[in-house]
Design a protein around this nucleic acid. Structure first.
Lengths: 180, 180, 180, 180
DNA sequence: GATGAATGAGTGTTCATTCAT
DNA sequence: TATGAATGAACACTCATTCAT
């Protein structure tokens, strides 16, 4: 049920998983607690569905960034990442919070590691094409930058200079001559 | 009471704030629940003290990194940051988790913003001395890198290439000639 | 609906009345919950039908045991009782469990008393024909033995010496000369 | 806490385990639900304590029945058994109901089998001393009689002829000459 | 006849917090 | 200073029952 997922998403993204009760979710979705359990086996199962949903949206972003020009592809990735951060910060909040729950929910670890290695590998591949020195290391660095910016954007919110960071990153990595 | 803080710190760092009960903390600290409430007004107040404590430890790291040579100072900062990550990963876990509780605990936002601006300003200052182009932007980027690496290290744990990232960062930013 | 009764019977006999849900019964019967309520007014009503059904099966056992020879009739009763216990122990489980719900379901008491007096009267009648001393008392005793053996067989299961007890009872009560 | 045990005992004995809620028990005991959980880890743990309590009382009955004369010992056992049934029928209700829950609670099986074998062995021993033919078989029979009478007394209540059955049993098994 | 979405009161259990001692 | 008995509101979850279709 999409109403439930939406309600759960916005509440959990804002308050965190443990601080959001099934009652709250049901109330916000406009249904009874009992009905919620017709759709989801447990609170944890609901969370898992939520994450899977969010992840698949993330994959679309990557998929639609590809072009023949690696510099352009990289720029697309950067721009879409920042757009996401601006338009749907709660998505990153949820992902980040969940990532920290790695010891509590077994399904999180697999998703997190898979996501991280996939992104890093993608960046490395682009850096190779762009002739960047130590592409593997640079990819890891940029992956960390992504996570760090996501985290800080979520925390500092409107005061965080997303625009400036976007400009810096694109200038640094996507111009003709990549020297550094 | 330091026993309480220690107990609370290790439990919350490992299990998270909501999953750690006052009973557990009191038991681990070897005192009664009642006594705990003689020292802290509430669970939330204990958490606040915990964070303030953790932050001040972070400041010590910064303070002891200073030298006359900005490149050396920067290298010290990097090295100490990575050492912390290796030796006390729970510290970062706690900080990261708590940072995300921004909407739940008002005091978190102020602390987080203050920390971040202080670090960024420090980095900017060093970059100015080192003649880095766009020192303010670079400082923001490196601050994000720090947060990102901390986050990923906490999640990926022993498989995360801390050593490699440390080497890359130092090579990139702390060598005589800073060109990028 | 016989499918419902069968499903309910096997589930309740195995798990007990309270631990068996209407959903389970409907699922096992291959119908919807709603349809089940077309046939039975409530879970309790279903239970009542279940018991009546079980009781009438018990009566068939008695009815087909009759012969002209009271000793043979008694032996038939014994043998059929033990056969039932061996072949359909869940039947006894259900009856025993339900019998204990006397304070919860008013209909249980009437059924139980009626069953017991009928059996006792039957036994008494046979004992009179067999010239047993104090036939009424002996009948009550044997009725108790039946219940006790049923109970113990249900609990101890495969380790309970049903064969031995059958032999003992028949030797004791069904031989030409009844002396005791 | 004895208040809790008493409340739980009387409620569970009357209504059954599943039909008695923790709320009811706490209310009857005059305490909060939370406090109940300071004394018992779970509803099941409370039940286990209840049974252990009941069993140890049962053992006292057996222990105080012994004399040098086996016939007198047997008579004592019979009389005490019937006295218990008259004075504390709920005790038997609880024990019987629990016994049927053998598949649900692991601790029940051990207790039930132990109780049953101990009683049967005791009876067999007495029957040997009394020169009863097939003492082992007779012991099993009498053990079943006990269970059966207990069961019927619980169900039929005031209409069940406990006095008559007591007289019959004692006459049958405890007189000088045991012939049967 | 037949479905299953929907409800609401209930369950066992947890836990931050208080307070008499 | 120190205890822990006690509370009450909350939690995740279940289930008999209803009803529009």
């Amino acid at each position: 049920m999409v109403k439930i997922m939406d309600a759960a998403f916005s509440l959990i993204a804002r308050q965190g998983y443990e601080s959001t009760s099934i009652s709250q979710i049901a109330r916000k979705a406009g249904i009874s607690k009992g009905l919620l359990y017709n759709y989801f086996l447990s609170k944890e199962a609901l969370l898992e569905k939520l994450i899977q949903n969010a992840m698949s949206q993330g994959e679309q972003i990557v998929a639609t960034s590809f072009t023949d020009d690696p510099a352009k592809t990289l720029e697309n990735l950067f721009r879409r990442f920042f757009r996401e951060l601006r338009e749907r910060p709660e998505y990153w909040r949820l992902l980040t919070e969940l990532t920290l729950k790695i010891d509590k929910f077994k399904f999180v670890h697999d998703i997190a590691v898979e996501k991280m290695t996939a992104y890093t590998e993608l960046l490395r591949h682009l850096f190779v094409q762009l002739g960047v020195e130590d592409p593997a290391g640079e990819a890891k660095l940029v992956a960390a930058v992504f996570d760090g910016i996501g985290m800080q954007a979520v925390v500092i919110k409107q005061d965080y200079p997303l625009d400036e960071l976007e400009r810096i990153l694109i200038r640094k990595y996507c111009n003709r001559k990549i020297t550094q």
